[in-house]
Simulated assay, not measured.
Amino acid sequence: MNIAAPESPVLSATELHSAAIVVDGSTVIELSDAHLDRIRRGGVTAVNHTVTTPYADTATALREVNRCRRWIDKHPDDVLLALTVADIERAKAEGKEAVIFGPQDTEMIGVDLDLLGTFYDLGVRILQLTYQRQNLLGAGCGEETDAGLTHKGRAFVEAMDELGILVDVSHCGERTGLDAMEASAKPVVVTHSFCDAMSPHIRAKSDGYLRSLGEQGGVMGITTLSGFLYYPDAPSRRPDLTRFVEHVSRVVEVAGVDHVAIATDYDETWTEQMRIAQLRSIAQSKSKEQQNLLGDFGWTERRAIGMDDASDFPNFTEALLAGGFSPEDVTKILGGNWLRVYGEVWKPA
């Protein structure tokens, strides 16, 4: 007698989100109780936190890492430092937030591989090679010319592989990012970006780039900043999560569903006054690096409709399901793809 296998229960969007390990692939967190409340309400398990300010010198970067470490130490019931995938899984089981240290720059290190090891020992597990401008490793996307990864850059990537630090090429120029994929024996990631074919921009990634990323085993997190998900035919129209899903779908079409994830790219420490000052600085600069990357959206419209802050993370699950993704694929996009690539690069406990 044939007995049919029991069907898996159909989960609601709320149940699916609650069961999943949810990861924000790139953000700047505010070290505050308000942040913890937002994370808790959003059901977020782990965040890749830009723990050091881009272009910071070594002493400043060390102070910033120390400050975040001390904050984590003061909140043992709410937060833990993620050094392994097991730490993220433990955070999920214990209802805590796992904070991954992921600086978006290497200028505080230069090419000193001893310093690279020091930052690893302090908890860094993701590291972006360049931030907009040229440095000793390669070119940022804000440079007019991208000559690719330097000889020192290749040695640096190899050292990151050996230590178990994930290579991030989000702000790199295209040639530099492709060279990093070639130089690394492990998957490389674009922690936070979007699709150039849909929203042309110096920070976006081309279809060819995405194919290489997928072939190499990497992942790209799709941001929900309005200036990045903009509609070319209506640049002042504020995007929503349907637009986010369209960018996700483009990556799936080009590279596959195993190579796309979420990364809000939200800076919780940013203020309206800081944005005004930035715009003034941009207006006085003629460099491509300093151009207005976030468009002309007002302060209250700078983020996509439906994703004002981390407490809105359940809206991602609803939008992906409404966009036709299966529960299994939604679980991958929410965090499973990040966990897979972390596990391939990070060293186990």
Results as ranks from 00 to 15, higher is better:
L129T: 01
G324M: 09
L178F: 01
T14H: 11
F244R: 01
G218S: 15
P54Y: 03
P239Y: 08
I282T: 14
S199A: 15
K286W: 01
E30F: 08
L149K: 04
L166E: 06
G43T: 01
G227H: 02
Y230E: 05
I276L: 14
A197C: 10
Q132S: 11
Y55W: 12
H171Y: 07
G343H: 04
C68W: 03
W338P: 00
T224A: 14
Q273N: 11
T317N: 03
F313Y: 15
H49Q: 07
T317S: 03
E144C: 10
I282Y: 07
K152Y: 15
T224R: 11
A319M: 04
V47Y: 04
I282D: 07
I88K: 12
A304K: 06
G173K: 02
E15Y: 02
H49W: 05
Y131D: 01
C141E: 05
D37I: 00
A234Y: 02
V167H: 03
R275Q: 14
K152I: 02
M274W: 06
I262T: 11
A91R: 07
D121P: 00
D77H: 09
L334S: 04
V345T: 08
F156M: 14
P200M: 03
G214Y: 04
D33G: 08
Q273S: 14
V189N: 02
E89G: 02
E162I: 09
A283I: 01
S287D: 14
R303H: 07
H17E: 05
D308V: 06
V23C: 14
D73N: 09
V254P: 10
K288P: 06
L113D: 10
H151V: 12
A234F: 03
G335D: 03
D24W: 04
S311T: 08
D267F: 10
E318P: 00
I276G: 02
G95W: 05
Q278E: 13
I39F: 05
S18I: 00
T52S: 14
L11Q: 12
A139C: 14
S193D: 12
K92H: 15
Q104Y: 01
I126R: 10
T50S: 15
D207R: 15
D179I: 01
Q290T: 01
H151E: 14
D161P: 01
Y231S: 12
R63D: 14
L229A: 13
L166F: 06
